[in-house]
Design a protein around this nucleic acid. Sequence first.
DNA 1: TTTGACAGTTCGTTTTTAGAACTGTAAACG
DNA 2: CGTTTACAGTTCTAAAAACGAACTGTCAAA
Lengths: 171, 171
Amino acid sequence: MRWDALEEEPCSMARTIGVIGDRWTLLILRECFLRTRRFEGFQSALGITRHLLAERLKKLVRQGVLRRIPYQESPKRHEYILTQKGLDLYPIMMAIVHWGDTHMVDERGRPLLHQHRKCGKNFDPVMVCSECGEPLSAKEVHTHPGPGARSTTPATKAPEKPKAKPRRSAA
Amino acid sequence: MRWDALEEEPCSMARTIGVIGDRWTLLILRECFLRTRRFEGFQSALGITRHLLAERLKKLVRQGVLRRIPYQESPKRHEYILTQKGLDLYPIMMAIVHWGDTHMVDERGRPLLHQHRKCGKNFDPVMVCSECGEPLSAKEVHTHPGPGARSTTPATKAPEKPKAKPRRSAA
DNA sequence: TTTGACAGTTCGTTTTTAGAACTGTAAACG
DNA sequence: CGTTTACAGTTCTAAAAACGAACTGTCAAA
């Protein structure tokens, strides 16, 4: 598997890693979620080299994760904002932060707290089953090939697909 | 920010990225969750160079994500299995897969389906608030510094911390 | 005796990244 | 006016990381 061919792999994880799976991209996206929009903002917040930053931003725009929008003429300047595709990365971010909060904090405690506007409380993100609403763990999940699986025959009768998106607590 | 200093950053995301944020680690972990345990298994499944694979496995063991367990003497052979810390990466994996399933599939559909043993259905992972059980999105979350935040004064009165772990549907 | 499985290690080449300086436009400073 | 500053990059060289292929060592099977 070549690194630049990840996106053609028949694996949603490999494809996603092709987009966000390098040294800097997730950190850049963290800044996006913290409302950074401009080149200098990213650069000074992260200490990334300007060269790499420019390249990563281009890639994210190409991939539809960020949109590049002019905010002034002469000199032309743009800012980078998350598209819906980018906003949808939020659960990944939260899952990463939560793991760090659980396993990588020092004695001082967690660096950042998250407050849910709807209920007003500081919270942890919990991943649940879209169908029954119960929390998920690796051992409770069984995987099997879907219609887009590798070179198996196109799977005339694909197993039932889950219902669409965040439709929680059917429980 | 230097890449090798990520783990000291006062940011759970940066620290986590210091562990899993490179070209191959997440793919190696995917294999772990798919029950691969041995060197050759990882190597042939991923096509990673043996050199890098050896190094990444060492790093994951050092970090407590994998445990290296002998499965035979003479010649000594070991296999790599997920620790609890490693198993806790599952929500990150699922979030990544789900984003790929949503935004990176081709016309054939998703390559892998996930079935929840408890309820028997194929599902999508949904991230919810630990406190009220509602699905989360970026706009509904407000962040503020916690006790382990950067060089601010140690925050004598830190805001209320969320209740522990997967304690869902207080709703 | 040779071959093969397994788990690495070594080494030379190529690709990425780091680090710093440079480009160009335009407003602000003195 | 001439200089400095803000901003968004681009260019260049050196250093680090990844790739690719071959090599090491132990043991079992052919």
